[in-house]
Design a binder for these strands. Sequence first.
DNA 1: CTCTCCCGCCACCCG
DNA 2: CGGGTGGCGGGAGAG
Length: 910
Amino acid sequence: MEVNCLTLKDLISPRQPRLDFAIEDGENAQKENIFVDRSRMAPKTPIKNEPIDLSKQKKFTPERNPITPVKLVDRQQAEPWTPTANLKMLISAASPDIRDREKKKGLFRPIENKDDAFTDSLQLDVVGDSAVDEFEKQRPSRKQKSLGLLCQKFLARYPSYPLSTEKTTISLDEVAVSLGVERRRIYDIVNVLESLHLVSRVAKNQYGWHGRHSLPKTLRNLQRLGEEQKYEEQMAYLQQKELDLMDYKFGERKKDGDPDSQEQQLLDFSEPDYPSSSANSRKDKSLRIMSQKFVMLFLVSKTKIVTLDVAAKILIEESQDAPDHSKFKTKVRRLYDIANVLTSLALIKKVHVTEERGRKPAFKWIGPVDFSSNDEELVDVSASVLPELKRETYGQIPVCAKQKLARHGSFNTVQASERIQRKVNSEPSSPYREEQGSGGYSLEIGSLAAVYRQKIEDNSQGKAFASKRVVPPSSGLDPVAPFPVLSVDPEYCVNPLAHPVFSVAQTDLQAFSVQNGLNGQVDVSLASAASAVESLKPALLAGQPLVYVPSASLFMLYGSLQEGPASGSGSEKDDRNSEAPATVELSSAPSAQKRLCEERKPQEEDEPATKRQSREYEDGPLSLVMPKKLSDSTDLASPKTMGNRASIPLKDIHVNGQLPAAEEISGKATATCSVSSEWGNPSRNTDVEKPSKENESTKEPSLLQYLCVQSPTGLNGFNVLLSGSHTPPTVGPSSGQLPSFSVPCMVLPSPSLGPFPVLYSPAMPGPVSSTLGALPNTGPVNFSLPGLGSIAQLLVGPTAVVNPKSSTLPSADPQLQGQPSLNLSPVMSRSHSVVQSESPVYMGHPVSVVKLHQSPVPVTPKSIQRTHRETFFKTPGSLGDPVLKRRERNQSRNTSSAQRRLEIPSGGAD
DNA sequence: CTCTCCCGCCACCCG
DNA sequence: CGGGTGGCGGGAGAG
C-alpha cells in the first residue's frame, strides 16, 4: 500500500501551490491541533477537496497496514481505492509535504484508531518524526478523544460554506478511518449535524455535506418551533426553580400538543419528508431530535444559556410520556455529546451558570441568534429568570452591548459608524475587547441580563423586522412548516458579531489571531487557538468564527463590488434575478442548491421569493448584502466564478474589479465615517491571505452599494465600508424584493485594508500594511487579512447589524473578534451564493458572503432538480464526490438513488 | 467526589 | 441474515 501511495504521490507530486499550506502546517504544527491542519487543507482547495484526502492518505500511507487493527483501515485496504481516494491521493501527492505529514501521522498512529486523531494532531505539530513518537507515547488523553475534538476534525474537512456547486459526500467509513475513530462516533456527530441540516444522509454510509448555508434557516425554524412549544416558559420555569429538579413538572409544558408530535415535527422540518415519517420511525432520530430541541432551547432562551439539567429535564419530559428521571443521567450524557458537536460548530460554548445553589454546567449559545426576532415573549421570561442570574455574575454590561442595544433594528450605516466611532473614541487605546473583557467569561449571567435588556430594547426597535418574518400559521407543526417560516431576517446578519464576542475573550482572540495570522489561509488555527485556550475548548470554537470571516467574506465583498461595475464574469442571470426571484434562485444557481435546499424546506410558499432570497443571504454568517439594485448588472455578477472558484486567481479579480469597485463604492458611499481608531493594533501579522480560489468564486459581482470610508490614516486605518444604498433594512431595496438589510458599513482597520481589496481604492492611503505586499498577491489584489488581532474589521449591517440579542453580549465588537467579522448581508439578490471562506475550517462563521449569482454555475439539470426538491443534497449526485471535484465526477457519480431519505426530501415540495 | 463522556454492547431496521 | 444505525449506560479520566 504504502509503496503505491508513495509512488502515486511521487508521480504527481509536483509540488504545487498547495504546498504552501503544507509547509505552513509544519510550522504551525506547533500546536498540535489537528484542526488547524485540516482546516488548512481545506482552505486550499477547500471545499471541493476533501479533507478526507489527507486523512485518508494518512491511513493509506504505508503505515496503515501496520497500523492497526482498525477495521476501517482494513476496509480501505481492501478496497482499492475509490476514485475519490485516488483523487485524494493525487491531491496529497500534489503536496508532498502534506503527504509526508500524513504518513508520519499514520505511522505514529497509535494502534488504536482513536488515537489516530489525536495522534495526527500531534504530528501535525511536529512535522518531525521525533515529535510524533512522543505523542504516540502519550496516550491520547480523553480529551483528545473527545467527541468535540473529533467533531472539529470532522468539520475541518468540509467547508463551512461550500460552494453551491460543490457537493461533498461524506463517507462515514472514510471519515471514521481518517479520523481514526469508530464509526459509532461518527454517527454521533453526523446525527447532530444532520439535525441542523449541515449534512443529510444520502445513502448508506454516505452523507452529503451541506455546510452552513442553511443553518440560519434551520435555526430560525427551530426557534420558531421552540417558541411554539413554549420552551422558554419551560426553561424559565425550571431555571427559576433552579431545577430543583425534578420537581418541575411540565404540566403545562406543552400546550401545543404532544411532545411527540412536536418532535416529529422537528425531524420533519429537518427533513421534509413526512411521509416517510417512517423513516423516522423509531428512535433513531432521537439524537437528532434531541439535538434540535436542545438548540431550540437556546434559541428560545433569552439568556441563551441553557443548563444541562434543565435541558435534560425538558427533553425527558417531552420525549416520554412518563418521564423517567432515571434517564436523566443518560440524557445528560447525550446532551454532552450534542453539546460537543454544537460547540465544535461554534454554536454554543460551555459556561457555568452560577446559581445560588452552585454552579451548573451549562452552555451558552454563541451562534447566530437574530435570524428572527422573536423576543417579545422572551423578554418576559427572561425577565423573570435573568434577575437571578444577573446578580450573581456581574452586572455590568459592556458598552458595546449597550450600543448594540441601541438599535439593531434598523440602523443606518451612519449610526453604525457613529457607534463605532464612539467606541473607538471612548477607548482609544482599548479596543472593544476590553470592554468585553470586563465580562470575561464569567459573564455569562451578566451577559444574560444584558441580553435581556437589549432584547427589550431591540424589540421595540427591531420588531418591525420581526414582524416581517413570515410566520406560517401554525405550520410549525408541519414538518415542513418550520422552514417556511423563515422569513427574512434582515436581522440575522447581526449575529455574527455577537457570537464571537462572547465566546472569545480578547486575549484569546489575539492569541488566536496571532497564531493564525489569519493569513489568507484563513485556516485558522483554531486548533492552536484552542490549544491556547484549553479551557475554552468549546469557547475557541466559538471564537473561531471570526477567523474565517475575513478572507472569504472580504473577498466576497470585494468581488461583489467589483462586479458591480464590471461584472464581467457574469453571468447570465442577472435579469432573472430581478424577474422572478423565487424561481430564479432555485433554478439559477447550482450552488443554489444548497440554499435551495434550505429554502425549500421552509417552503416559502408564502414567502415571496424575495424573502427566501433574503434568507439565503442570511445564511452566511457574514452576509454582505448587496442590493442588487445597483443595476441589474450587479445581480449578475456572479457568477461564474462560482464554478470556477478556484481557478481564478484572485489577482485578476482584484485587478479588474478593484479599482472600479472602489470607486463606485466611494461614489456611492454617502457617508464616510471616520473612525478613530485604534482598534486594534495591528498586529503585525497580517498575513496575507491567500485568496483562496474559493474566494474567487465569490468574486462575483454584485453590486454593492458600499461606501468605503477610509479612515484617515490617523485612525488607524479604520475604514468603514458603508453600503451606500442600503435602505432600511426591511425595505427591499433594490428590487424591492428583498428586504435587505444589508451591510451598513464595514469598518476595517487600515492595516487590514491593505489587503482588503475591496474597499481600498487605490486611493487608499498607504497606511495599510506593507505586509500585504509580502503576500503574493499583494496589492489590491489580495486582501489579506491581517492578523486577526490586529485588525478588527467591523462590518455593520445596516439593519441590525448588531444583533440585538447577541449584541447584548458584552463583547466588544470588532476587536474581540479580532477578526473582522463581516456580516454581509447579502443583498437580496436573487441568488447569491454564499461563499465561504475557504477555510472551512471550522466553524466559524466563516464569512460567507453572499453573492448574487444567478445561477451559479453550471447547474446541471440534476443539480437543479435536486435543489428544489431535496432540501439538501439528498440526492447522491448532489452530494458529489467527496474528493472529486464535483465537476465531472459528480455527474459521473451515480446518482444513486436516494435512499429513503433522499426521496423524502422532496418534502420541500410539499 | 463530581463532572464528562468514551466506548462499545447490542437492539433495531433495512435491504 | 448481515450490515448499517444508533440507543444506552457502565465505567473511567479529568478536575
